[in-house]
Computed example of a mutant assay.
Amino acid sequence: MLTERDDRLWTDEEPLAFLGMELGRIMTVIELSTGGLFVQSPAELTAELRAALDELGDVRFVAPASKLHGHLYMEQYREAYPDAELLAAPGLAARRPDLRFDGTLGDVPDPRWSADIDQVAITGHRWLTELAFYHRPSETVILGDVGFHIDERSPLQTRLVARLLCVYGRIGPPIEFRLTIANEATFRRSIRDVLAWEFDRVIPGHGAIVESGGKRAVAEGFDWIL
């Protein structure tokens, strides 16, 4: 259910079908040095997953990557962990009026997790702002829909569609995202902010995790804007 990737860092990979291809989706769990868990892009809170999380510690923060990525099951975490804080990405509060959020994420990490996690708001797209996170102790960058990574381990149909979307064998967003960037300079600056971090591993929103060489992979995947 949860795979330990590094000290105090776990992932949960689940299937996700979209546009006729199996993309998969990844949840990331970080144990904070101050205690408690930071859950990014929460997965469906099954009994098995809840038991695994409870074994690790108390869920304190639950965060999506964007208003589209990683929010579908947040209500389950509100019910299961009433003391946990639900954090909204820009635009998510309007999209999910059924949820009460405890704050909105931006470029500046909260002091309660900033010792372990940094963050960048990737802006410049016409209608979507995404949060990229950086786990300092494990030198890991965590992305959402800005970071597809489909490789040879995916099913044939997924690889074929990924080639059409320009996300096969490289980290980055699909072609329709690129074509709807409103401010290239702002988007480029956001990606350069991500590349300013010292990281080796990349956990994408969809596809295969890059265990090493992640910084180079991100630079190559975004060469079209850099």
Rank of each mutant, 00 (worst) to 15 (best):
L2A: 08
T3M: 12
E4K: 15
R5D: 06
D7H: 07
D7P: 03
L9T: 05
W10E: 06
W10A: 01
P15T: 05
A17Q: 05
L23F: 00
R25E: 10
R25A: 09
R25Q: 12
I30V: 15
S33Q: 09
T34C: 07
G36S: 02
F38A: 03
Q40F: 15
S41R: 06
P42T: 07
P42W: 00
L45S: 02
L45F: 00
T46Y: 11
T46M: 09
L49D: 00
R50H: 13
R50Q: 15
R50V: 11
A51G: 15
A52C: 12
L53E: 04
D54P: 07
E55G: 15
F61G: 02
A65N: 15
A65D: 07
L68Y: 13
L72Y: 13
L72V: 15
Y73A: 11
M74W: 07
M74G: 09
M74Y: 07
M74R: 07
E75R: 08
E75N: 11
Y77D: 03
Y77W: 10
L86Y: 04
L87R: 04
A89C: 13
P90E: 10
R96D: 12
R96E: 15
R96F: 14
P97T: 14
P97R: 11
L99W: 08
D102S: 11
G103I: 11
D107M: 03
D110K: 04
R112E: 09
R112T: 06
S114E: 14
S114F: 12
D116Y: 10
D118Y: 02
Q119C: 07
V120K: 03
A121M: 06
I122Q: 00
T123M: 01
G124P: 03
W127A: 08
L128V: 14
T129C: 05
T129F: 03
A132I: 02
Y134H: 14
S138G: 09
T140R: 06
D145H: 10
G147S: 08
F148S: 03
D151H: 11
S154Q: 13
S154P: 02
V161I: 13
A162F: 06
C166V: 14
C166R: 14
V167K: 03
Y168W: 14
Y168Q: 12
G169R: 12
G169Q: 12
G172Q: 10
P174F: 03
P174A: 13
I175N: 10
R178N: 09
L179H: 06
N183R: 13
N183T: 04
T186P: 01
F187K: 04
R188I: 05
R189H: 06
R189I: 01
R192M: 06
R192K: 10
D193V: 00
V194N: 00
A196Y: 03
E198R: 12
E198M: 06
F199N: 03
I203N: 02
P204E: 08
A208F: 01
I209M: 07
V210Y: 04
E211T: 11
E211A: 14
G213R: 06
K215N: 07
A217W: 02
V218N: 02
E220N: 11
F222K: 01
